[in-house]
């Protein structure tokens, strides 16, 4: 069994726990004792909220809408469609016709990259996320 210490993905408390992994599957979440938030405790979401990771409905490949339906595509095809459409819209309507909603559930690094993508690559400050909601 492997054990990895990480931070809970649910509310803003930021509890730490150890994910115990067997054969590539998370089997339990055990609270960290020596931290400054949860002191050996976890709520129900922290302790029992991990099995969605292995859910059969997880998206595994990119999807691209063709003739009205979402069809499986390669990563390069998906990136290609996004790059092309963004470039096209940017050319016709300017960068401010493109916007992004970032994610309060994703990491700092990912949020940094998405705002950089919008500001430095697309050229707009149209980036927001659900802190407002």
């Amino acid at each position: 069994m492997e054990s990895v210490v990480t931070t809970c993905p649910y509310c803003g408390c930021g509890c730490s726990f150890t994910l115990n992994v067997e054969g590539g599957e998370i089997v339990s979440a055990v609270p960290q004792v020596d931290n400054v938030v949860n002191l050996g405790r976890l709520c129900l979401k922290g302790r029992f909220g991990f099995d969605f990771v292995h859910h059969k409905d997880r998206l595994r490949t990119p999807l691209v809408r063709r003739n009205g339906t979402l069809e499986e595509a390669t990563w390069d095809e998906a990136y290609g469609v996004i790059a092309e459409r963004f470039a096209d819209i940017r050319k016709k309507h300017g960068p401010d016709a493109i916007a992004a909603f970032s994610s309060a559930r994703c990491t700092n690094e990912e949020n940094y990259l998405l705002q950089k993508l919008m500001r430095a690559v697309v050229g707009t400050n149209n980036i927001d996320h659900c802190a407002r909601l």
Partner: peptide, 19 residues
């Protein structure tokens, strides 16, 4: 009233993994 106990009980008696 969070029901952690109910889930913990059900999980503890499972003879398989939660997933």
């Amino acid at each position: 009233a969070c029901k952690s106990c109910e889930i913990a009980c059900a999980v503890a008696h499972l003879k398989t993994t939660v997933a």
